[in-house]
C-alpha cells in the first residue's frame, strides 16, 4: 500500500466515525419519537428516512448535489453565511456517508425503542421520574443493544460508501479519496496487490465492527 492509501484509510475511518456520530445524534430522537409517540404522518417520516436504503447511491448523491451544491439553495446559503462548502470537500464525504447510513441506524433504533415495554416506563413515571429520567434510566438501557447494533451497521455502511461519496465529494487524493474510492483506483490501474491490501483492511474493520456489535454487554443490556 502507498502512503496515499494509508491516508485514504484514515480518512475513511474519520469520515465514517463523523457520519455515525451525526446519524446517532439526529436519528436517536427521531426514532424515539416515532416509536413512542406515533402521529399522523409518522409513516411518511419513516418512508423518507429509509429512502436512501433503497435508492441507488448515485441517486442519493445526485439529490444531495441538488440540495447542497454551490448553486443550490442550501449549499449557497451555507457558503454565504458560514463559508462552508460541502461539494468536493471532506464534509461532503461525511454528509454522503451519513445520509446513506442513516436508514440502517434509524430502523434498528426505532425497533429497539418500540420493543421496550411501556409498562416499565409507566412504572418509573409513577415513581416520580421526569420524562428525561425515564429515557436515560429505563428506555435507553433497555434498548442499548439495538442502538449499538444499528450504530455499527451504520458505521460499516458509511465506511463502504462509494457512489454517493463520489458524487458529492469527488475523488481527490489526500482530501476526499476514501478507502473505497482508492480500491476502485487500484483496480482500474491493475494494481492487484494494493487492491487486495485495501480489501483486507476494509474487510477486517467490518468484521471487527460486527463482532463488537454482537458481543454481550457487561452492563445495561438485556
Amino acid at each position: 500500500m502507498t502512503a496515499e492509501d494509508y491516508t485514504a484509510i484514515i480518512l475513511s475511518l474519520a469520515v465514517a466515525l463523523a457520519a455515525t456520530i451525526s446519524v446517532v445524534c439526529v436519528g436517536t430522537p427521531i426514532a424515539w419519537y416515532i416509536a413512542k409517540k406515533p402521529f399522523r404522518g409518522s409513516g411518511l417520516v419513516v418512508a423518507i428516512s429509509t429512502l436512501p436504503l433503497v435508492l441507488p447511491p448515485t441517486v442519493t448523491g445526485y439529490l444531495l448535489l441538488e440540495i447542497f451544491g454551490r448553486r443550490a439553495i442550501v449549499g449557497h446559503f451555507l457558503e454565504q453565511q458560514f463559508g462552508l462548502v460541502i461539494v468536493f470537500h471532506w464534509t461532503g464525504a461525511v454528509l454522503a456517508a451519513a445520509v446513506t447510513s442513516f436508514p440502517l441506524y434509524f430502523v434498528s433504533a426505532r425497533s429497539a425503542f418500540a420493543s421496550v415495554d411501556f409498562a416499565y416506563e409507566q412504572a418509573a413515571r409513577l415513581m416520580g421520574c421526569s420524562e428525561w429520567t425515564v429515557f436515560w434510566r429505563i428506555t435507553l438501557p433497555l434498548s442499548i443493544r439495538g442502538l449499538v447494533a444499528g450504530g455499527v451497521l451504520g458505521f460499516v455502511r458509511a465506511l463502504g460508501d462509494f457512489g454517493a461519496t463520489l458524487m458529492v465529494a469527488g475523488n481527490i487524493p489526500g482530501r476526499t479519496r476514501t478507502a473505497a474510492l482508492a480500491l476502485y483506483d487500484a483496480t482500474i490501474l491493475g494494481d492487484a496487490a494494493r487492491a487486495r491490501s485495501l480489501v483486507a483492511v476494509l474487510g477486517a474493520v467490518a468484521v471487527a465492527a460486527i463482532w463488537f456489535a454482537g458481543r454481550p454487554l457487561s452492563k445495561g443490556g438485556r
Binding site: A119, A123, L126, M127, I138, L142, K219, G220
Partner: peptide, 12 residues
C-alpha cells in the same frame, strides 16, 4: 404507588 401482578422490576 403501584405494585404489579408481574412485579415489573427493571431487568437491567
Amino acid at each position: 404507588g403501584m405494585v404489579y401482578q408481574d412485579d415489573l422490576l427493571f431487568p437491567h
